[in-house]
Amino acid sequence: MTEHRDVDTRRATDAYVSAEIHRLLAEDPEVAEQGITVVRRELGLVLHGEVESAQRRDEILRRVAEHFPELAVTSDIGVVRAQPPTEIEQLP
């Protein structure tokens, strides 16, 4: 697994972790999501975005936890609603 500290005296390199998570989520065939953002909060990393099913949402968190077991990661990913529209937009 990749070492996420440049040297012992430096803090964990969040930028590299964030980049690796982005690539993991896009390139992992079981996920293939490009619309997930990673935000650093006090309690750890939070994943944001919207996906098409609850299974996909759960799989994202599972994959990230599997690849980065040392990180505290929580998910705030939602499932996009698919109800019919209630309004139309009129354009000239």
């Binding site: 098409e52 996009v80 529209p85 009129q90």
Partner: peptide, 29 residues
């Protein structure tokens, strides 16, 4: 119009195009 599903947050958006319509007018469905 960006109609990406996560942006519109509904199954589809509907647009009425016609030259006599008021621009930007929105009506209920």
């Amino acid at each position: 119009r960006n109609v990406a599903h996560p942006v519109i947050k509904q199954a589809y958006s509907v647009f009425h195009l016609g030259e006599h319509l008021e621009p930007g007018e929105v009506s209920r469905m």
